[in-house]
Design a binder for these strands. Sequence first.
DNA 1: TTGCTACTGCCAGAATCTGACAGTATCCTA
DNA 2: TAGGATACTGTCAGATTCTGGCAGTAGCAA
Lengths: 229, 229
Amino acid sequence: MSRSERLLDLIQCLRRHRRPVSGHTLADEMGVSIRTLYRDIATLQGQGAPIEGEAGLGYVLKPGFMLPPLMFSDEEIEAIVLGSRWVAKQPDQRLSAAAANALAKIAAVLPDDLREDLDASTLLVGPPAAAIEGIDLGLVRQAIRNERKLGFLYRDAGGAASERVVWPFALSFFDKVRVVVAWCELRQDFRHFRADRIAELQATDTRYPRRRQALLKEWRATLDKPRGS
Amino acid sequence: MSRSERLLDLIQCLRRHRRPVSGHTLADEMGVSIRTLYRDIATLQGQGAPIEGEAGLGYVLKPGFMLPPLMFSDEEIEAIVLGSRWVAKQPDQRLSAAAANALAKIAAVLPDDLREDLDASTLLVGPPAAAIEGIDLGLVRQAIRNERKLGFLYRDAGGAASERVVWPFALSFFDKVRVVVAWCELRQDFRHFRADRIAELQATDTRYPRRRQALLKEWRATLDKPRGS
DNA sequence: TTGCTACTGCCAGAATCTGACAGTATCCTA
DNA sequence: TAGGATACTGTCAGATTCTGGCAGTAGCAA
């Protein structure tokens, strides 16, 4: 195995362990001496990988992905750039900033002539989505990722408000509104909540009792049959 | 310079020359022997780079970009995936397919656990944009890239039709409609054309007399001042 | 303190890369 | 049709890089 392949493997290996791993363990898993492992870690850090080593503990990789060298056609790059620009205009501030960062990272490694094409790119996105939620969508995405319950006050179309505790597992971006897809403890069923009607959002540390992917799959299966709201 | 750096350099070098370049020239530019150059080319081709070599001519790189190893945070990847999904639902078929391909390429290199997260991802995009243009937006993007004139029949809001020859330089994606931004020869001014009002689109081989980027810059400068249509 | 860990410098052997040469096949032009 | 230019492959010795082991320093925790 060539060195560059091993470096990518090392990242993957670090990702698997959530807790700090000692260099010795990693060296064993990679089938390489401890000395070489230190060199590999140093190389990866030099390439921008967020690996942290602490004496007495081991190594942790801050969440993230290392993509190996990839070839994209010009249309594929156009698609990625256009898509990221669209995301950058969405009202979810954290996601919007992430999209801008991703674009900057890509632009940083392109040769000069291409960067100019990108900067002055010819694919544009219209004005930002008008509706601005009063809540922080970042909290919702975090709850989804960590499978945590969310509590909030929900106003339905008629204006009637109700308190909900839900198990959120997806966030859908429509033209004008963002919709949280979740299991509702009050209704004991899947429900879609428009983000602009959610108030007093409370993130909790309580894990919901089912796996996110299972919920998502089940919800998809129900999409054919119409339901009440 | 390490070998992996040299490989990326080689791609950039190939990109600069549009015409076929001989291996000997490339070897000189990279400061490396011809034998090593052949080895490097083979390695790049093995990594999926679309390099073509023809005896008697030299090497050409089909348009595309090789991205070096890149680190993305989880939110950055989420943003890219969400954005690409949005593009994949746009009515521009070629661009939509390109977005799907790009997603597949990224998914192919992610470790299994992440690929699952991606497949069953929790960030969704609403239904595809409703308005379907009667014209092929791919032709428009191609004309923009190559700085070629476009001819078509345009119906304005009142229904009156007129024949136009324009210099297209940008394509803007709004919630419902796609808008071609161009210099209009008939009006001798910048104009925005809704794609769904364009008919009988004719791509031409005639290059328009100004640089796309210059037009774009000038157009941006006019955005403050209101204009007629 | 003791034990565990990260991290660095050094050096010799292993692995890889590189350049040079020889040779074949293909394409273009004259 | 012939000649020249070019892509491409095999081989091999020398240059370069990588690797593993060793010794040593420093930080953290029980």
